[in-house]
Nucleic acid binder design. Sequence first.
DNA 1: TTCCTCCATGATATAACATAACATTCGCGC
DNA 2: GCGCGAATGTTATGTTATATCATGGAGGAA
Lengths: 144, 144
Amino acid sequence: MEKNIQEAENYCQQNGLNLTPVRRKVLEILLEKNTAIGAYEILDLLRESGFKNQPPVAYRALDFLVQNGFAHKIEQLNSFIGCMHPGKDHSPAFMICRNCDSVSEEEALTRNFSVSQIASKAGFTVEKAVIEARGLCQSCSDLA
Amino acid sequence: MEKNIQEAENYCQQNGLNLTPVRRKVLEILLEKNTAIGAYEILDLLRESGFKNQPPVAYRALDFLVQNGFAHKIEQLNSFIGCMHPGKDHSPAFMICRNCDSVSEEEALTRNFSVSQIASKAGFTVEKAVIEARGLCQSCSDLA
DNA sequence: TTCCTCCATGATATAACATAACATTCGCGC
DNA sequence: GCGCGAATGTTATGTTATATCATGGAGGAA
């Protein structure tokens, strides 16, 4: 975990990114809990550590972390989780347990995988899958 | 579209479900727009048609529709879209265009598919994919 | 140095999304 | 008629997220 922070710091140095105190603290928070947590819970923890606690503080830090691959947003929970392999180009698939709220990040290879395959590899029983891609549709691509 | 409403009505009859006026109206709204719309926009449209317009009105109808496969929630947009093949057991994948906001529902077969395959079939260029499964993790299954 | 610019943060306010909780109505079987 | 359950009405509030403008601080150019 301390190791992850170190890696993040190195990665930022090498890429001209600024891992400021708030951003670093939010990353620590995310990695300590290893489950998904909401922005306002993060805000509380920030306050406990002496940071300012207005919503934008948390959201800005989270934006930075998500943007740069240090965290992911779990859309179904409106919450955030630290990334297990930052920097690397990857397409994550999350397994969210409805019973214990644990969230595990699996790698969804780009080609020929299925959610159920990923899940069964992780011993996870899927009840509902959300698959949403963002990008450009045919006609908007044509216009470009 | 009128056809879809008919089908919904039949399906409800056969399955002991109650497609009440509000629920029906919300389904109509969803099918007319064929893009994702938010609960509060639906609420406005309901008011225009003489329905009550407190939030619970829309959310309850949406719950019913989602629950019974007549609509889906698009998590990334906090909005809702009518389902193109209600009743049938299916696992949808949504392609959301960042330019024109169109949302298309594709079928994600349960086995051996990939988001990029589905996307390219639909002429869609994926920039970011969200894959989230809800269910039971290994240890919670073991306890059961 | 002085000034400018860029980036990050501080601070206030409000928007957007969603649900809790309790009251009321209505159809249906007894 | 009475009780019950399902749906709706109503009020209030909780939760998540962003817009906007002000402030501060590091680094470069004149």
